[in-house]
Design a protein around this nucleic acid. Structure first.
Length: 287
DNA sequence: AGCCAGGCCCTCC
DNA sequence: GGAGGGCCTGGC
């Protein structure tokens, strides 16, 4: 076991269970200690637990000496969260969210797993998205070295494309199956470089993503925010729609259509729009 | 029974 | 460009 030191507010449970990533499980704790969270990443089983000093972690297998830096990176532990909070404090609704959930952070996931997971999110609920993602891993992913009977890595684009629509439909993915396969084929091919979008400007990356089947503006912005280093991304879903409508567009005779909300919010919140989004979403959803 | 769930796509206008 | 309907599935 080892420790990741954290600077500034950090809430592991809120961060891992806020609908950004879908493979974190809260394990039953035997005592009053904080619970462990388990996931599969970096071809390993990953365990994280909040402690007074930061985040404890262990992985299996544990042979990689760089795993600590990978986890720091995943959890964005070196992000200057306090400065972001200060920059967003002008908005009353966001400020209330920050006060209620200090330390809720935006993670930095693997882009492919993030993209495939959010394709599953269309017209779906978080509970079922979680099941869909886990079922794809169990059925199509690769086992962890030394842990053949346990959870598997999320399938690569090639693994998903090879499986085909029928297999995914049988797994219960519904109409998303054809989108998953078609997008997996594009990502597995040589023309579309998903990882390279981390270095592309926001608008270029957005345009590229929305060319993919099953990926519209909302899902693209989720992928940009949670995996492609675009902190200005602002996914507008039903919860954000409600939150903004209630706060800012409740009275006008012509209510703002959803398509206008993202530009409006990005103008308002600027380069930290993604954090504003996460707080509006989390606060409104948990009520 | 009918509606909703962190949408997207297609068709019409 | 935008409004309307269909879509897999599961839970209430």
């Amino acid at each position: 076991m080892a420790l990741l030191t954290v600077d500034g507010p950090f809430d592991l449970a809120a961060t891992l269970k806020s609908g950004q990533a879908f493979r974190w499980r809260r394990l039953e704790s035997e005592s009053d200690d904080p619970p462990w969270f388990e996931s599969v990443a970096f071809e390993r089983l990953i365990y994280l637990r909040q402690s007074n000093d930061g985040v404890e972690f262990s992985t299996t297998p544990d042979s990689d000496p760089d795993i600590a830096s990978l986890l720091r990176d995943y959890l964005r532990l070196d992000e200057g969260i306090s400065a972001i909070y200060e920059a967003l404090a002008f908005d009353e609704q966001v400020a209330q969210g920050i006060a209620r959930y200090p330390g809720l952070r935006i993670v930095r996931q693997d882009p492919w797993e993030c993209l495939a997971s959010f394709i599953c999110s269309a017209n779906n609920n978080i509970r079922r998205i979680t099941k869909n993602v886990e079922d794809m891993a169990s059925e199509l992913g690769s086992p962890i070295a030394g842990h053949a009977a346990e959870r598997r890595s999320f399938p690569t684009a090639t693994q998903l494309a090879t499986a085909g629509e029928g297999v995914l439909r049988d797994l219960g993915l519904g109409f998303r199956a054809k989108y998953l396969v078609a997008t997996a084929e594009r990502v597995a091919g040589s023309e579309f470089d998903l990882f390279a979008l981390r270095l592309a400007p926001y608008q270029d990356a957005l345009d590229a993503l929305t060319e993919l089947p099953g990926v519209g503006d909302k899902i693209a912005n989720c992928v940009l925010l949670f995996s492609l280093d675009k902190p200005e991304a602002f996914p507008v879903d039903v919860w954000i729609d409600r939150a903004l409508r209630e706060q800012h567009f409740s009275t006008p005779t012509t209510p703002m259509p959803r398509s206008h909300m993202r530009p409006w919010a990005q103008e308002r919140f600027g380069r930290h729009a993604g954090y504003a989004n996460q707080y509006l979403f989390h606060s409104r959803r948990l009520g």
